[in-house]
Design a protein around this nucleic acid. Structure first.
Lengths: 150, 150
DNA sequence: ATATTTTCGTGCGTATACGCACGACGTTTC
DNA sequence: GAAACGTCGTGCGTATACGCACGAAAATAT
């Protein structure tokens, strides 16, 4: 078995393990791991359209909408109509949402610690960089048949 | 922002990107990326209990059950009662399921290629090894308060 | 200015991911 | 052998992940 062939499964395993671990850690704050990602994204650039938010997470716009509906019920985020674009709605953290995020960021510290406690600083940087490159190379459109001729 | 703090999001982004890419690639075979993982797991050790299958994927047993129900409808897997354990049911690839898996493995080649086309062989091995270590360190139980005393 | 095209959010359908509680069966203990 | 305990699969509930089709609004073309 080539390393190449194992890579997808290893990536899947690592992610799902992280996700489970995060979910259990955040459960005491009545928040899911994915909601944490959404809150974190909002906290680093408030008041963006749902689509922009989805692009940054990254996630599907319709998924983000469903999440926003739930988070809005909990008063953690607010959606307002966009000032200039009549189609769009912007999402922002409420004050409660910001507080919640700060709390949960603290709680997540233990997960991040546990995640890297088997890596040294240099390995952490390496892993980060390799993950980013993989995501980038996969993010590009599939190499479609050349259509220049048409 | 420390690399440590970005690592979880980078892992998430890389995995979700891979998952989306795989889903679109496998769609023409009427199969999802996760179903591919299940078939691949079965193909490397046929006739295991649902729980064993779940442990190897890795996934939740109840998730695996739902997937098996769907795959059984498509005649790709079969479930039989365990020969000795009256509780358990074993899952196996049908002949159709094996053929399907072989086809889809071919189709997945392009995804795996695209995934590593920005990495050289050494980097691929490094990434694989780092991912495995991260998964391992996260897989252990959360560092609970020591209970030796009790 | 009007017509075409693109973009935004919404709503619906399906598949995963997981937790939890239940009944059935196995294993262990006494 | 009977009772206690553990393990397997099932069924249900919730949250994500995504595709697709729709109407509304913006951007573009003519």
């Amino acid at each position: 078995m080539n390393p190449k062939d194992e890579l997808p499964l290893a990536l899947r395993t690592a992610y799902l393990t992280l996700h489970r671990r995060s979910d259990t850690e955040f459960a005491q704050y009545d928040i899911t791991a994915d909601q944490f990602v959404l809150l974190a994204t909002l906290s680093r650039g408030d008041a963006m359209t749902q689509r922009e938010l989805a692009a940054r997470m990254p996630s599907d716009p319709s998924t983000v909408r469903a999440m926003l509906v739930l988070l809005e019920k909990q008063r953690l985020v607010a959606r307002e109509s966009h000032p200039t674009d009549g189609r769009a709605r912007t999402a922002t953290l409420t004050r409660l949402g910001l507080r919640k995020f700060q709390q949960v960021w603290e709680a997540g510290q233990s997960v991040r610690d546990q995640m890297v406690n088997s890596l040294n600083a240099s390995e952490t940087r390496t892993l980060l960089s390799l993950l980013q490159r993989v995501a980038e190379s996969l993010g590009e459109r599939a190499p479609e048949l050349v259509t220049d001729r048409l």
